[in-house]
Design a protein around this nucleic acid. Structure first.
Lengths: 224, 224
DNA sequence: ATATAAATTTAGGCCGTCCGAATTTCCAGT
DNA sequence: ACTGGAAATTCGGACGGCCTAAATTTATAT
């Protein structure tokens, strides 16, 4: 990671593009509009930046077909993800931020910190593998631990599980969820579930909660 | 501080200009070339930026005569100084940085941190009034403590003093100085001094040191 | 097969920030 | 009072990064 043979240094903007593309990368190539929506930019602007990034070897672009990160691009993007998540962890653990208000701060800091600072923070925190939302923190070499998750609506009823990851960045949702005691590490159990993607009842912290299906789907659990 | 009635938000670049101008502000107005030298930019670039900053009310410019910060400009610049020095203090105190390698890091971070983060760091550190180099940290309202300093070459020989501030950002000098035990808080005593700005002998930490005059002039002491 | 809709790229502009080169202003010394 | 050189400014150009509008390509539906 971090050492990319002969590439231009990335601008802040370019770092955001790579990170967005990584996040959108599933099976297929990532489309211009996907990127534009995620970064809240016009598709035309994205086309322009795609050209630069492609010229510089961070990604490959097939016109009208989409974009795939090169190895260098993926490494650079993972480096940003590592920074972001470590910064969030540091701010929550050491500086009294809450999991619903760290995102913006990290979004700015991730472009400003040196590798040295990132490493120092990681060390100070004992090399955490997950951030406050349970998102895995990539190591310097780009690897990370990704547990086998089961989303709350897919749980076997009556079987106790550990909530491990909350997949939303929305501050209001995060506050609501935390309020319900649904923080990573909490023991949860699916009590019942209504059909047609209806609300879901979970037992957590000695009480029961009825939760919207879509929100419950963002809560990922692990066994034991 | 921080609340400036109706002004445009500052860019990173503009923040650097204001900070530089504040640092260069003595009696007289600050000249274009002074700013250009300090920021390592061409005078042409500085002229351009001066115009924008002046249009936006951060400073007043008399063509061919120089530049003076407005109140808003001074507040904005002091806010950056506060950030910079608090960040340096935090990095040294909490993350194992040394006083010779924090500058660059702080230079980048000062543009990225929120007021909230700055306040949290200040709080975590117990609202320090001086940074690792002994430079005073402005409070949120822009005030700061500036002791009455006596530079080492101006000390009365034989009178013990406390080294309080080291006025250089040069990493090599800082390492040399730290190596000699000349860190803020150290007890120092002028032993002798050669005429014509010659070397200066100081007693520090039970030993004697001969130091170049110019370097010694960067070491500022306070009584007791 | 073709018309239309959707996605994408290109074209042309704007702003901030930098530069080098040309020009203007200021001041000091004759 | 004049003039040469230093200091400062303006000018023209570049680039990154954003935009809107127009053109183009691809996908879909009749």
């Amino acid at each position: 990671m971090t050492r990319d043979p002969a590439l231009e240094p990335l601008t802040r903007s370019a770092e955001d593009y790579l990170k967005a593309i990584l996040a959108l990368s599933g099976e297929a190539a990532v489309s211009t509009t996907q990127i534009a929506q995620r970064l809240e930019l016009s598709p035309a602007s994205v086309s322009g930046m795609i050209r630069r990034l492609s010229d510089q070897g961070w990604l490959e672009h097939v016109p009208y077909r989409g974009v795939v990160l090169t190895d260098a691009g993926r490494r650079a993007a993972l480096r940003m993800v590592r920074r972001h998540r470590l910064i969030e962890t540091y701010l929550v653990d050491r500086l009294g931020f809450t999991w619903d208000d760290v995102h913006e701060e990290a979004e700015r800091l991730e472009h400003a910190v040196s590798d040295q600072l990132v490493d120092r923070m990681a060390e100070a925190l004992g090399h955490p593998r997950f951030d406050p939302h349970g998102d895995p923190i990539p190591r310097s070499d780009g690897t990370m631990d990704i547990p086998d998750y089961v989303a709350v609506p897919d749980l076997v009823t009556g079987e106790p599980m550990i909530l491990h990851r909350v997949r939303t960045g929305d501050a209001e949702r995060l506050r609501y969820i935390a309020d319900a005691g649904l923080v990573p590490g909490a023991e949860v159990m699916l009590v019942s579930r209504e059909p047609f993607d209806g609300p879901v009842t979970v037992r957590v912290g000695g009480g029961e909660r009825v939760i919207a299906h879509d929100l419950a789907a963002m809560l990922l659990c692990v066994r034991e």
